[in-house]
Amino acid sequence: MSMIELNRVSFRYRDEQEDSLCEISASMDTGSCWCVSGPNGCGKTTLFRILAGLEFPTAGTYRCGGEEITAKKMKRNEFSWNFHRRVGYLFQDSDTQLFCSSVEEEIAFGIEQLGFSDAEIRDKTDEYLELFNLTRIRKKAPFHISGGEKKRTALAAILVTEPEVLILDEPYNNLDEDMQAWLLEFLEKLKSPERLILFADHHRNSASALADHFLYLNKHHRIEKDDAEARQRVL
Protein backbone atom coordinates (compact mmCIF):
# COMPACT_ATOMS: atom_id res chain seq x y z
CA MET A 1 0.00 0.00 0.00
CA SER A 2 1.34 3.39 -0.96
CA MET A 3 1.89 6.23 1.43
CA ILE A 4 -0.25 8.61 -0.57
CA GLU A 5 -3.12 7.46 -2.75
CA LEU A 6 -5.10 9.89 -4.87
CA ASN A 7 -8.14 8.39 -6.55
CA ARG A 8 -9.83 10.61 -9.18
CA VAL A 9 -9.54 13.66 -6.93
CA SER A 10 -11.33 16.80 -8.09
CA PHE A 11 -11.52 20.08 -6.31
CA ARG A 12 -13.52 23.23 -6.82
CA TYR A 13 -13.30 26.35 -4.71
CA ARG A 14 -16.54 27.77 -3.45
CA ASP A 15 -18.20 30.25 -5.81
CA GLU A 16 -16.03 29.10 -8.70
CA GLN A 17 -17.39 27.83 -12.02
CA GLU A 18 -14.50 25.59 -12.86
CA ASP A 19 -12.64 22.80 -11.12
CA SER A 20 -9.21 23.73 -9.82
CA LEU A 21 -8.20 20.10 -10.00
CA CYS A 22 -9.69 17.51 -12.31
CA GLU A 23 -9.68 13.78 -11.62
CA ILE A 24 -6.17 13.48 -10.34
CA SER A 25 -5.02 9.97 -9.64
CA ALA A 26 -1.60 9.09 -8.35
CA SER A 27 0.06 6.81 -5.89
CA MET A 28 3.25 7.80 -4.19
CA ASP A 29 5.48 5.63 -2.07
CA THR A 30 7.92 6.43 0.65
CA GLY A 31 11.46 6.51 -0.56
CA SER A 32 10.54 8.42 -3.69
CA CYS A 33 10.84 12.04 -4.62
CA TRP A 34 8.20 13.69 -6.77
CA CYS A 35 8.37 16.84 -8.78
CA VAL A 36 5.05 18.50 -9.57
CA SER A 37 5.24 21.03 -12.36
CA GLY A 38 2.95 22.85 -14.74
CA PRO A 39 2.03 26.38 -15.84
CA ASN A 40 0.90 29.06 -13.41
CA GLY A 41 -2.55 28.48 -12.06
CA CYS A 42 -2.64 24.82 -12.98
CA GLY A 43 -3.47 23.79 -9.44
CA LYS A 44 -0.11 22.84 -7.95
CA THR A 45 -0.72 24.73 -4.76
CA THR A 46 -4.27 23.42 -4.52
CA LEU A 47 -3.02 19.87 -4.88
CA PHE A 48 -0.47 20.49 -2.15
CA ARG A 49 -3.08 21.98 0.13
CA ILE A 50 -5.17 18.88 -0.26
CA LEU A 51 -2.17 16.67 0.41
CA ALA A 52 -1.39 18.74 3.52
CA GLY A 53 -4.93 18.31 4.81
CA LEU A 54 -5.93 21.96 4.51
CA GLU A 55 -8.49 21.41 1.77
CA PHE A 56 -10.54 18.32 1.00
CA PRO A 57 -11.48 16.83 -2.36
CA THR A 58 -14.94 17.71 -3.65
CA ALA A 59 -14.93 14.41 -5.48
CA GLY A 60 -12.70 11.35 -5.28
CA THR A 61 -10.67 10.15 -2.32
CA TYR A 62 -7.34 10.98 -0.76
CA ARG A 63 -5.72 8.39 1.43
CA CYS A 64 -2.66 8.96 3.50
CA GLY A 65 -1.08 5.92 5.09
CA GLY A 66 -4.16 3.95 4.21
CA GLU A 67 -6.53 6.25 6.02
CA GLU A 68 -8.96 8.39 4.07
CA ILE A 69 -8.59 12.08 4.87
CA THR A 70 -11.89 13.90 5.19
CA ALA A 71 -12.97 17.24 6.60
CA LYS A 72 -14.99 15.53 9.28
CA LYS A 73 -12.07 13.49 10.57
CA MET A 74 -9.78 16.49 10.44
CA LYS A 75 -12.05 18.40 12.78
CA ARG A 76 -11.01 15.99 15.50
CA ASN A 77 -7.95 17.47 17.19
CA GLU A 78 -6.32 14.12 17.84
CA PHE A 79 -6.68 12.97 14.27
CA SER A 80 -5.45 16.25 12.86
CA TRP A 81 -2.48 16.27 15.20
CA ASN A 82 -1.57 12.71 14.24
CA PHE A 83 -1.82 13.54 10.57
CA HIS A 84 0.17 16.77 10.68
CA ARG A 85 3.04 15.31 12.63
CA ARG A 86 3.57 12.94 9.74
CA VAL A 87 3.10 15.48 6.95
CA GLY A 88 5.23 18.62 6.79
CA TYR A 89 4.17 21.40 4.46
CA LEU A 90 6.33 24.35 3.40
CA PHE A 91 4.16 27.26 2.31
CA GLN A 92 4.93 29.10 -0.87
CA ASP A 93 5.06 32.37 1.05
CA SER A 94 7.18 32.05 4.19
CA ASP A 95 5.76 35.31 5.52
CA THR A 96 2.42 33.67 6.17
CA GLN A 97 3.99 30.54 7.57
CA LEU A 98 6.01 32.15 10.34
CA PHE A 99 3.94 33.29 13.26
CA CYS A 100 6.15 33.18 16.36
CA SER A 101 8.04 36.12 17.74
CA SER A 102 11.54 34.78 17.23
CA VAL A 103 13.36 32.36 14.99
CA GLU A 104 14.13 29.94 17.80
CA GLU A 105 10.54 29.86 19.00
CA GLU A 106 9.49 29.18 15.45
CA ILE A 107 11.60 26.04 15.44
CA ALA A 108 10.59 25.04 18.94
CA PHE A 109 6.87 25.31 18.20
CA GLY A 110 6.51 22.03 16.31
CA ILE A 111 8.37 19.85 18.78
CA GLU A 112 6.59 21.51 21.63
CA GLN A 113 3.27 20.45 20.14
CA LEU A 114 4.63 16.93 19.99
CA GLY A 115 5.02 17.04 23.73
CA PHE A 116 8.79 17.04 24.09
CA SER A 117 10.24 18.03 27.45
CA ASP A 118 11.70 21.49 27.92
CA ALA A 119 15.28 20.21 27.91
CA GLU A 120 14.68 18.21 24.73
CA ILE A 121 13.10 21.23 23.10
CA ARG A 122 16.16 23.32 23.92
CA ASP A 123 18.62 20.74 22.61
CA LYS A 124 16.70 20.07 19.44
CA THR A 125 16.19 23.76 18.73
CA ASP A 126 19.90 24.42 19.16
CA GLU A 127 20.69 21.54 16.83
CA TYR A 128 18.43 22.80 14.06
CA LEU A 129 19.52 26.41 14.45
CA GLU A 130 23.05 25.20 13.88
CA LEU A 131 22.05 22.95 11.00
CA PHE A 132 20.32 25.78 9.15
CA ASN A 133 22.91 28.37 10.06
CA LEU A 134 20.40 30.44 12.01
CA THR A 135 22.15 30.66 15.37
CA ARG A 136 23.23 34.22 14.76
CA ILE A 137 19.66 35.45 14.29
CA ARG A 138 17.93 33.12 16.72
CA LYS A 139 16.53 35.94 18.85
CA LYS A 140 15.31 38.02 15.93
CA ALA A 141 11.69 38.28 14.93
CA PRO A 142 10.84 36.42 11.70
CA PHE A 143 9.50 39.60 10.14
CA HIS A 144 12.83 41.33 10.59
CA ILE A 145 14.96 38.83 8.65
CA SER A 146 15.74 38.46 4.96
CA GLY A 147 13.85 36.29 2.48
CA GLY A 148 16.47 33.55 2.43
CA GLU A 149 16.60 33.46 6.20
CA LYS A 150 12.82 33.21 6.34
CA LYS A 151 12.87 30.27 3.98
CA ARG A 152 15.53 28.55 6.06
CA THR A 153 13.59 29.22 9.24
CA ALA A 154 10.42 27.79 7.76
CA LEU A 155 12.26 24.70 6.52
CA ALA A 156 13.90 24.18 9.90
CA ALA A 157 10.56 24.62 11.63
CA ILE A 158 9.01 21.88 9.51
CA LEU A 159 11.90 19.45 9.47
CA VAL A 160 12.45 19.56 13.20
CA THR A 161 9.47 17.24 13.71
CA GLU A 162 10.94 14.80 11.17
CA PRO A 163 7.83 14.23 9.06
CA GLU A 164 7.47 11.18 6.80
CA VAL A 165 5.90 13.19 4.02
CA LEU A 166 7.51 16.43 3.04
CA ILE A 167 5.57 18.81 0.81
CA LEU A 168 7.52 21.80 -0.46
CA ASP A 169 5.67 24.45 -2.45
CA GLU A 170 8.26 26.17 -4.63
CA PRO A 171 11.10 25.91 -2.14
CA TYR A 172 13.48 27.75 -4.47
CA ASN A 173 11.43 30.93 -4.38
CA ASN A 174 13.35 33.96 -3.14
CA LEU A 175 16.62 32.09 -2.87
CA ASP A 176 19.83 33.18 -4.53
CA GLU A 177 21.99 30.71 -6.40
CA ASP A 178 24.19 29.80 -3.47
CA MET A 179 21.17 29.11 -1.32
CA GLN A 180 19.56 27.07 -4.10
CA ALA A 181 22.65 24.92 -4.36
CA TRP A 182 22.66 24.51 -0.60
CA LEU A 183 18.99 23.54 -0.57
CA LEU A 184 19.48 21.04 -3.36
CA GLU A 185 22.25 19.35 -1.48
CA PHE A 186 20.19 19.40 1.66
CA LEU A 187 17.12 17.83 0.03
CA GLU A 188 19.36 15.19 -1.50
CA LYS A 189 20.44 14.25 2.00
CA LEU A 190 16.84 14.20 3.20
CA LYS A 191 15.90 11.46 0.81
CA SER A 192 15.46 8.20 2.64
CA PRO A 193 13.48 4.99 2.23
CA GLU A 194 11.15 6.11 5.02
CA ARG A 195 10.37 9.49 3.55
CA LEU A 196 8.29 10.80 0.68
CA ILE A 197 9.25 14.18 -0.73
CA LEU A 198 7.07 16.26 -3.04
CA PHE A 199 7.97 19.62 -4.44
CA ALA A 200 6.64 22.06 -6.95
CA ASP A 201 9.22 23.65 -9.13
CA HIS A 202 10.06 25.52 -12.29
CA HIS A 203 13.77 25.03 -12.07
CA ARG A 204 14.56 22.25 -14.51
CA ASN A 205 18.10 21.56 -13.39
CA SER A 206 17.38 21.10 -9.77
CA ALA A 207 14.29 19.08 -10.56
CA SER A 208 16.21 16.70 -12.75
CA ALA A 209 18.90 16.26 -10.14
CA LEU A 210 16.52 15.52 -7.33
CA ALA A 211 13.27 13.94 -8.47
CA ASP A 212 12.73 10.39 -9.54
CA HIS A 213 9.02 10.77 -10.36
CA PHE A 214 7.25 13.52 -12.22
CA LEU A 215 3.74 14.87 -12.41
CA TYR A 216 2.78 17.45 -14.99
CA LEU A 217 -0.48 19.37 -14.60
CA ASN A 218 -1.77 21.17 -17.69
CA LYS A 219 -3.80 24.34 -17.73
CA HIS A 220 -6.98 22.30 -17.67
CA HIS A 221 -5.98 21.10 -14.23
CA ARG A 222 -5.50 17.53 -15.36
CA ILE A 223 -2.52 15.25 -15.28
CA GLU A 224 -1.31 15.61 -18.80
CA LYS A 225 1.11 12.77 -19.11
CA ASP A 226 2.12 9.78 -17.18
CA ASP A 227 5.37 9.54 -15.32
CA ALA A 228 7.69 8.82 -18.21
CA GLU A 229 6.23 11.44 -20.49
CA ALA A 230 6.19 14.06 -17.75
CA ARG A 231 9.80 13.34 -17.10
CA GLN A 232 10.61 14.07 -20.72
CA ARG A 233 8.58 17.22 -20.60
CA VAL A 234 10.35 18.53 -17.56
CA LEU A 235 13.88 17.48 -18.27
Binding site: L54, E78, E112, Q113, L114, D118, T125
Partner: peptide
Protein backbone atom coordinates in the same frame (compact mmCIF):
# COMPACT_ATOMS: atom_id res chain seq x y z
CA UNK B 1 -2.33 23.48 12.47
CA UNK B 2 0.23 22.16 10.02
CA UNK B 3 2.76 22.11 12.79
CA UNK B 4 0.59 20.15 15.13
CA UNK B 5 -1.32 22.89 16.93
CA UNK B 6 -4.07 21.34 19.03
CA UNK B 7 -6.03 24.33 20.19
CA UNK B 8 -4.21 25.53 23.29
CA UNK B 9 -1.39 28.02 22.99
CA UNK B 10 1.53 27.76 25.37
CA UNK B 11 4.25 30.37 25.67
CA UNK B 12 7.41 28.82 24.33
CA UNK B 13 9.63 27.28 27.00
CA UNK B 14 12.54 29.04 25.27
Amino acid sequence: VCRGFRGTYRVSPL
